[in-house]
Design a protein around this nucleic acid. Structure first.
Lengths: 252, 252
DNA sequence: AGTGTTTATCGTCAGGAAGACGACTATGAT
DNA sequence: ATCATAGTCGTCTTCCTGACGATAAACACT
């Protein structure tokens, strides 16, 4: 069946990735330095064109693997393998968001445990983990003293939406475990919540909450002292994906 | 700056709408009958191509106005005007979702009060409000006895996602008021929750909950007996958009 | 007028969950 | 040995919810 291609305007479709992790008690996002115009030399979210035979999720998983080496696991399967969590975030299609042409970007959100070093096509100097506050504040100065330019395109908006999604989603799901290695302690999980929310949580109430929620955590039998202090029990993520009742984010 | 159009595959981008309302104690969605191939004669979600100079939200608002006459109000503004709630839902881009060509559809979710009659380009016979269970069950029989064919394309999936979004979102937001006329009673609001969730709620506990949540409801001073029984106080939606603590959906 | 039905609204009570916080335990560092 | 650090177990109070009794104000009958 022939179809008149002039009946609709042609678009380019890309996927952009908000890849979040927790490093040194801070919520960090993966940023890559742009090598081409526009916004040459500026930081941006990783992403690329969707190929002709790809689903959107496939394209996002491919980009994630190219940038970080992480495999994405299906959101439907429990977090057994060591892949990152990947889900669609939102789609951005302002006619002027890319000065070259009409581009619609389907942003995805990925959550990963703390990783060795990022790589952008093998070039580590063009990719980095940066605290999200540093990437989102405009015209300030980063940790290294160099002035922070705003992210390219509308990527500050996309990053902001992704961070907000992650902040709200760890309230009522077990997604915070996606930031942890396969085995982790209650304290490490608590520090994830504290980093993502930017608040301090009571260790005792947190311990009661997470260990008392059926299916959230499964003890592996081992212990560790890698955080110092008394040895802590090791857990892995249980099968439960929804937290009911949810973890409450403190106000103010 | 010239850009090589052959460097990326061209896509068509559409918006599809999940327009929900509550009619006769049932959650209903707007469906339109397809006049062209493919899926000619089958029911589908309303939608259309995004124009060259339009934002995605603008395109969704335009389609909503064309199909229902409803104006969409900005999600940021409080629900003062009589427009419908409109928000982006998700994006669907399977390479085979449209047999003709590569189409990426940015689905939007709209919530509207019970409306007179739908119109699809002025032709009422090609548009209808149908209970969502009727549209989602495949191979059954609708209320009118005619066999229900599955929705065109992947629209059953989109509708299912939209319904799930609405069901979860009225838990923790004041969005249920978008299903109500500008002035409504506590009982009418309760019947919205009951229809969307498909459960029965205790009128006394519901009344205590909604009237006790600051900013949720604002009394207008009037009363009505349009539901029969003792006259009920009339309210309009307050400025609060988030419900904290949330309205709890009964289990099982 | 009285009675029943319907819906709205207020009140009471028990159980569960969360915040605040005391107490104790088990490791490494000095 | 002492201290600092982190983990784990309890207790108490407060708030919220679910279950449900009771009253109020309309309408439809008889």
């Amino acid at each position: 069946m022939p179809y008149d291609p002039s009946a609709f305007p042609p678009f380019a479709v890309t996927v952009d990735l908000v890849v979040l992790t927790v490093r040194r008690h801070a919520l960090c996002a993966l940023a890559v330095r742009r090598g081409e115009s526009p916004f040459q030399g500026r930081w941006a979210l990783p992403g690329g064109f969707v190929r002709d035979d790809e689903d959107l999720a496939q394209a996002a998983a491919r980009e994630l693997a190219e940038e970080t080496g992480l495999r994405a696991h299906d959101p439907a399967t429990p977090a057994q393998d060591h892949g990152a969590h990947l889900e669609q975030l939102a789609t951005y299609g302002d006619p002027k968001r890319d000065p070259r042409m009409r581009v619609v970007s389907v942003a995805h959100l990925a959550l990963a445990p703390d990783l060795p070093a990022p790589r952008a096509g093998g070039d580590a100097s063009n990719a980095r983990w940066a605290p999200v506050e540093e990437l989102l504040q405009q015209g300030g100065y980063g940790r290294d003293g160099e002035p922070t330019a705003p992210l390219a395109f509308d990527h500050a908006l996309i990053l902001s939406d992704g961070v907000e999604r992650a902040r709200s989603k760890i309230e009522y799901s077990s997604l915070a475990t996606a930031f942890c290695p396969p085995e982790f302690t209650v304290g490490e999980l608590r520090r994830v919540y504290e980093a993502v929310w930017g608040v301090a949580l009571d260790p005792r109430n947190f311990h009661r909450k997470v260990t008392g929620t059926p299916g959230f955590l499964v003890p592996t039998g081992g212990t560790t002292t890698r955080q110092g202090g008394r040895p802590a029990q090791l857990f892995r993520a249980g099968g439960a994906t929804l937290l009911n009742p949810p973890m409450l984010r403190p106000e103010v």
